[in-house]
Amino acid sequence: MRRAGLAMCAAVLGLAVLIAAKPPDDLPAPVTAPGSLPSRIDLIREQHLPDVPLTTQDGRAVRFYSDLVKGRIVAINFMFTSCRAACPLSTANIRDVQEALRVRLKQPVAFLSISLNPEIDTSAVLHAYAEAHGAGPGWTFLTGQRADIELLRRSLGAYDLDPELDKIPTQHTGLLIIGNEPTGRWKAIAALSHPTRLRQAIERVVLPVTEWQTGAVAVNAVPYADNAQASIRGQ
């Protein structure tokens, strides 16, 4: 109410243009909801982040939630090493993004690639795959029991409502699921989007909104190599 009044006064006085330059300590406080609002962070953990046992490409036994996600910023995809179409491309995209983010973000982003073919994709197989694709530190490849991985896949929203399509593993290799566990902000984006777009989507989950790139800067942020091609690709 007070703010609206001020805004109206400012408008009347023609001083409105100053509003954009408000100091940060003048930012609005949240309205406190009466009654008890159950923790939405806890709800996400209960519903979407099962603490299933997994094994890393180094053979380390880990729990999904407590060892890999809790307190972290994560970018998760599902893959399998024998997948020929999408997986090598999304793996390459993730590698690019990982490099770009290392320079740009203070906060580390943990990349988790989970095999949908865990019987074949043993730790050793995943280790070789990670090496071959130049995966840097902070990128964990994971295998485990199929039932656990299926639970994880569904919990994270990587499923198809059509049961026939859901049986096709490549249907689940296209998503990059991005989460900021401490803040509870989760998004998903197609892993085959341009790495610049993946990077921006991750940044939007990590950074406070006041630091999001906007307008022309956001659109053209770090114009990428095939930019010229992109501009002539229109019909």
Partner: peptide, 25 residues
């Protein structure tokens, strides 16, 4: 497009049948 791909059902076959999990659940 940037690293585009063709959707391949062949990939379904390369990993055997991943459906067992879905069927169980």
């Amino acid at each position: 497009h940037w690293r585009t791909k063709m959707l391949s059902r062949r990939d379904a076959l390369t990993i055997g049948l991943a459906a067992s999990g879905s069927a169980l659940l």
